[in-house]
């Protein structure tokens, strides 16, 4: 009797918390967009940042609470993994924002987080939001390492490829970058951009600037760089996630690779981003072609994360079958 009352209470709070997070994120997204329109008002921007931190904290406590209550790492089903993903996305984008001091990132990433949260809290049936006991194969310490690494890599790779997509969208305007001087500009632009964003005024001292660049040009070139750096760190995470999964599979049923659809798609993701990173090394491929591969990776990550589960085969079905 006593326990049933406790769980009832928790369920009520869970609903409240999930809704609070969703509303908070929606508000943050609107604030970020306003801050892009009303450029000279720092208040809105700061408010947006505060709101994002706020929702991140609530989300973190929500997940910790589930961990405490159900006694296993809150990554045992699709609902929890979506929650975990948006928590990570929030955290990583705030880190990049702190590093680069650009509001564009928030405005770019928050719609994605709102969509993930909306899907998790609004469209998943309540039965799937509940935590259920782990099947024998999942009872391992590898669960924590493997799944959290995979989610971390999904989050970073999604962010990085999102930058690539925006790069491609903005790049379409041919007037911005002339083909001839792209390489020289790349070097200069990075310099100019970083200095302007890093809050020391360079304009009067630099001997490099020959012409004034538009904000948009700067944005495009820094997007290229952010994308490279973010995917660059997401790739080792993905490697560790796949490898920890392989070691775990070898521990659990004696084969580290069985071409299960999820494994196959994780490998496809890995190969796509490996070719992205190599394309960046090739002369003439950085920029547009690399960005194309990077944006392609965005869809591949989603197929790998969610799409494969709809096949309903294999071990990674997240309970879609039942």
């Amino acid at each position: 009797m006593h326990t049933s009352i406790v769980t009832l209470n928790l369920d009520a709070y869970q609903n409240f918390l999930a809704n609070a997070i969703f509303c908070n994120l929606l508000l943050t997204m609107c604030l970020y967009w306003f801050s892009l329109i009303i450029v000279n008002n720092n208040l809105i921007c700061n408010l947006a940042k505060f709101s994002a931190v706020n929702s991140n904290v609530i989300l973190f406590f929500y997940l910790s609470w589930r961990w405490y209550n159900y006694n296993f790492f809150p990554l045992s089903n699709l609902y929890e993994s979506l929650m975990f993903l948006s928590c990570l996305l929030l955290f990583i984008y705030q880190f990049i924002e702190f590093k680069t001091r650009s509001r564009v990132i928030g405005a770019l990433v928050l719609p994605l987080i709102v969509l993930v949260q909306g899907f998790a809290s609004l469209s998943l049936p309540t039965a799937m939001q509940k935590s259920s006991p782990l099947v024998p194969a999942l009872q391992s310490n590898w669960l924590m390492l493997h799944v959290s690494m995979m989610m971390l890599s999904y989050a970073t790779l999604l962010l990085g490829s999102l930058f690539s997509i925006l790069y491609l969208v903005l790049y379409k305007d041919k007037k911005i970058l002339t083909k001839k001087s792209i390489k020289e500009q790349f070097v200069e632009e990075n310099f100019v951009f970083q200095l302007t964003t890093s809050a020391f005024s360079l304009n009067q001292t630099s001997n490099i600037i020959t012409e004034a660049k538009t904000d948009r040009q700067r944005l495009i070139l820094s997007l290229d760089n952010w994308s490279y750096r973010t995917i660059g760190i997401g790739f080792p995470f993905l490697t560790m996630g796949i490898i920890s999964g392989a070691v775990w599979a070898n521990e659990a049923w004696g084969s580290y690779w069985s071409w299960d659809p999820k494994e196959t798609w994780a490998l496809i993701t890995w190969l796509i981003f490996a070719s992205y990173l190599h394309a960046r090394l090739t002369k003439g491929w950085r920029g547009k072609r690399a960005a194309f591969l990077g944006s392609f990776g965005f869809f591949i990550v989603w197929v790998c994360y969610l799409g494969v589960n709809f096949l309903g085969k294999g071990l990674h079905s997240y309970g879609f079958l039942n």
């Binding site: 071409w259 659809p261 196959t264 798609w265 490998l267 496809i268 190969l271 796509i272 490996a274 070719s275 190599h278 394309a279 090739t282 494969v308 096949l311």
Partner: peptide, 16 residues
């Protein structure tokens, strides 16, 4: 090498 990586990914896509 990049072409090879992409070719392998296309192949295993079929496999999945």
């Amino acid at each position: 090498a990049i072409a090879l990586l992409l070719l392998i990914s296309i192949t295993i896509t079929f496999g999945s």
